[in-house]
Amino acid sequence: MNDPFSHIDPLVHAPARLFILSLLAHAEQADFLYLLHATGLTKGNLSAHLAKLEKAAYIEVEKTYRGKYPLTLYRLTPIGWDALHAYHQAMQSILHGLEPALARRKTA
């Protein structure tokens, strides 16, 4: 990876979407209400971010019912996993490159 900066996916890089993807990476499935509580976003904001991720096929949505309650479940897709993995690698490379400069600044 010569230029890790060009490998940063802006769709993943936004803090709110990165948080959503990270939560879903730890879960098999989560519903809208859980993501709302865990991220602390507003309903509209969360919906907008989820729609973007769904449009990019990073997450998939399953609309179902539990008794009489409608339930919207989200999970990462294989494409989403790949995007998260690529982002992780790019960020690791960038942070690794930053370490000497930060250490120099600390000792100066």
Partner: peptide, 9 residues
Amino acid sequence: PRTGYLRPA
């Protein structure tokens, strides 16, 4: 119903 459903991996 209060804080949402999560199925951990």
